[in-house]
Amino acid sequence: MQLEKKPCLTGVGLTKTFGMGRTKTVAVDHVDFTFYEGEIVSIVGESGSGKTTLAKLLLGLINETEGSVEFLGKKRDISSGKKKQEYWKSIQAIFQDPFSSYNIFNKIDAVLLDCIHMRGGKNLPQAKKVELMIEACKFVNLKFEELTNKYPFELSGGQMQRLMIARIFLLKPKILIADEPTSMIDACSRATILDYLIQLRNEIGMTLIFITHDIGLAYYVSDTVYIMERGKIVERGSADDVILRPRAAYTKRLISDVPKIYEEWDLSTV
């Protein structure tokens, strides 16, 4: 437990609108929140509720239509390319669609090598670099020897998602935004990866913003859960409160839709 909670990312009336007129979509609709340093936050909602858009706003990949983002208690300034680069030193992301996230001209070992260089490991001996890469791959159940010389598009979806996590293992960022990071990974490896993300928080105080539609995962990893419905945050609180004692009708429905294993799954409600 932390004694003093320091704000890490704050959203004030944060809004993102796409299109205009009849095709206008308010993807993120006046949301307010504060994520604290070292906190694990989950953002849960159905398809189209605005989770990925919120992640992009936090990353500074798209501009807000209204409202603002505060970073470490101050208004975030990413107005120039240089300031953006600076901001991105502390924040890393794992994207929902792993296929879109790699440069297709970069081989896999180059992707991992880049991470080592970004962490100031440029002058390490080659053997040490390889050792680090092997360790990172092993962690996510990938075999380094089988990856070298391949391009990311030669991997399966699950392998690609693991490679993303291997990058995080090497980068150890201050803030990680993970958008459905394990959707294509099987249950056994998923548990290892989630445990690792939790461990990173415990060891280096990483703030984790975990985006998912899987309520079980959200419950397993997070301190705080935010529920999003059509661009708005409809419920928030500790994981136990939100998942075990939901109040919003929307949250209740989401939870009741999850397949159960210890009781009959009610399919009559669809």
């Binding site: 490896s189 998923r190 548990a191 290892t192 309520i215 079980g216 397993y220 159960k260 294993i261």
Partner: peptide, 18 residues
């Protein structure tokens, strides 16, 4: 390693297979 949002999940460790 099954993850379901039920009370007790957070206390019992998942059995990851390294």
């Amino acid at each position: 390693s099954i993850i379901v949002p039920e009370a007790g999940l957070r206390e019992h460790k998942l059995t990851a297979v390294p």
